[in-house]
Simulated scan of single mutants.
Amino acid sequence: MDSRDLSPWFELMPPDGPGPMVVAIPYAGGSGRAFRSLRRHVPSRCGLALVDLPGHGRQAAEPFLHDADQAATGLLAALKTLPATDLVLLGHSLGGVLAYEVAARLTESGTPPAGLVVCGSRAPFTGLGHPPVAHLPAGEPFLRAAVDLGLAAPEMLELPDLAETFGGLLQADLAMTASYRPRRRPPLPVRACVIGFSADWIVPEPALRAWDTLFDSPPLHLRTAGGHLALHERENDYGEAVRAAVEHASERRVP
């Protein structure tokens, strides 16, 4: 495929073998580059497609999305431009919810993904896990509440330029999380893995175990150290957990 045909939703890190393409969807406020370190951990035979939602990363000039249905619809269209059809969907926090929704829609269309990996993500029907803040007035009222909950770094309140750039993006993503209403579906026939973190108060063990009911075979559960953003706090531990998860999720599809 000509690289010019690739959707702007993706930064592509090609494989060196016949493995699946790992489609990595970031957390609220994040962009695909948050996952670049996974190249050192994900099996080299697997490609990496790092997702930028509109308003993020390479799509920074595009309007933000506030609705998970719009995000899933856009991502499904973008997937058609990838040079692979064997996919493992990987999502962190908000990304986990979007990965599940996309996996469900692919399954309903008769093309289920090879696997699904959710990291630091509550099962969709278990709620937010924190008081809602997306409805607060934009700017300092929203950012202060987000910082107090650990959803944004304290520096957001100290660096006006950073706050202006990041605040609207985070608020749109959190609105997407708060508004998501999963449809009732049969359990997905997809190999899945659920990764949780020991110090993540937003996604405690019951919210992780609740994913079990969404698949026709119990997902593999992995736990590692760190808080909600363990991918930055504990990069090696996070990467090794993702490596094991991708191996599990794709083992039936990879020679």
Rank of each mutant, 00 (worst) to 15 (best):
H221R: 12
G196N: 14
L12K: 06
H228W: 00
G95E: 04
Y180G: 12
E240F: 00
L128V: 00
D200M: 03
Q70L: 05
L188I: 07
Y238T: 03
A71Y: 06
A28P: 04
P218C: 00
A152E: 10
G29K: 08
S37M: 07
G19S: 08
R209E: 10
R234A: 13
T107L: 05
M1Y: 04
A163V: 13
G17D: 14
G127Q: 03
S109W: 07
P14D: 12
E101F: 04
M13D: 09
G150H: 04
L208E: 06
L229G: 09
G127K: 02
D5E: 08
V133L: 11
A49T: 00
F35Q: 02
F142D: 05
P182S: 11
A244Q: 14
L170W: 11
A103F: 05
R253T: 15
S121D: 04
L229Q: 05
L214K: 02
T213K: 07
V22Y: 00
A84T: 08
L75N: 09
A178L: 08
P124W: 01
A178E: 15
A210E: 08
A71V: 03
E235S: 01
A153K: 13
I202G: 08
D69L: 02
L170V: 08
R253Y: 04
G139R: 12
F142R: 11
G227E: 07
S37N: 09
H66R: 13
R243P: 01
L208T: 09
T107S: 11
N236S: 10
G19Q: 09
G30N: 13
L136V: 09
